[in-house]
Amino acid sequence: MRWVTFDCFGTLVDWRHGLRTSAELIAPGQGERLLEAYNRHEHAVQAESPRLRYRHVLAETLRRACAEEKIELSDDDATVAAATLPYWPVFPEVGAELSALRAAGWNLALLTNCDRDLIAGTLRRLPVPFDAVVTAEDAGDYKPSQAHFATFRRAHEPSDWVHVAQSYFHDMVPAHRLGIRRVWINRLGERAPDDSIIQRALPDLHGLLTAVQSG
């Protein structure tokens, strides 16, 4: 079985746009500030409570971001990211590139730091069906823990496996440690802390089939 696994948010779905516009609903004009503050806190929340459901991670991280930026946040408003997440936009090239992989005989899976109920809403918006999904709820931990990868490997025993993701920290590092072939979707034009672990890098999903099949 040949598999391409994907991170979802940031790789297939425009996570930054979704979170920024969600923050704008509760603090108009402050979306970018809150997005950057959110990014500074989310991993700590996940590391402190690996079994905390992702909707609660979103809420707690937003609370900490607002506290840091001195923005008042009501308890009801803390749920805004979970409420809007199923509507966050899919990147425009996703449909064609995933369809090309499927036509070439690859199975597709998601390894996502999300819950089953939240990812169900996103799956309805993704233009190509997936053959398997592993959530943080299934794995019992959040990436960059290796639990998602171990859970997927036990369930599907892939003979050929490529992992595709935008996050160097959450995905490229654990995939490298496990010896999984990988493609970095560097949408933000970042510099890798260690270039040696990057086997293939693309600015978006265009040309992904060639990258996956290049061995």
Score class of each variant (00 low, 15 high):
129 P>W: 01
8 C>F: 08
208 L>D: 08
65 A>Y: 08
190 E>A: 15
29 G>P: 05
133 V>H: 05
170 H>M: 10
196 S>Q: 09
106 W>V: 07
187 R>A: 06
77 D>Q: 10
29 G>V: 07
62 L>Q: 06
141 D>S: 15
152 F>I: 10
92 P>H: 01
149 F>W: 05
14 D>S: 03
206 H>Y: 11
149 F>P: 08
57 V>F: 09
2 R>C: 05
103 A>D: 15
100 A>W: 06
125 R>F: 09
54 Y>F: 14
160 D>S: 11
73 L>E: 00
29 G>C: 08
37 A>D: 14
80 V>R: 06
38 Y>T: 12
70 K>L: 09
149 F>G: 12
171 D>M: 04
31 G>L: 01
186 N>V: 01
55 R>K: 11
77 D>I: 03
165 A>T: 05
151 T>S: 12
41 H>F: 13
15 W>N: 15
213 Q>H: 08
134 V>N: 11
125 R>N: 15
20 R>W: 09
163 H>E: 02
61 T>L: 04
179 G>M: 00
190 E>G: 04
173 V>P: 00
64 R>C: 00
191 R>H: 10
136 A>D: 09
192 A>C: 06
141 D>Y: 04
159 S>N: 09
126 L>Q: 09
146 Q>Y: 07
93 E>L: 00
129 P>K: 01
71 I>R: 00
147 A>H: 02
193 P>E: 04
62 L>M: 08
24 E>P: 00
28 P>H: 07
214 S>V: 13
200 R>T: 14
164 V>M: 05
199 Q>L: 11
182 R>T: 05
78 A>E: 09
107 N>G: 13
93 E>A: 06
110 L>D: 10
151 T>N: 11
65 A>K: 07
25 L>G: 07
214 S>R: 13
38 Y>G: 13
132 A>S: 13
72 E>Q: 04
70 K>M: 08
166 Q>L: 04
183 V>A: 03
37 A>V: 03
150 A>C: 05
79 T>I: 09
144 P>E: 06
34 L>H: 05
87 Y>R: 10
134 V>H: 08
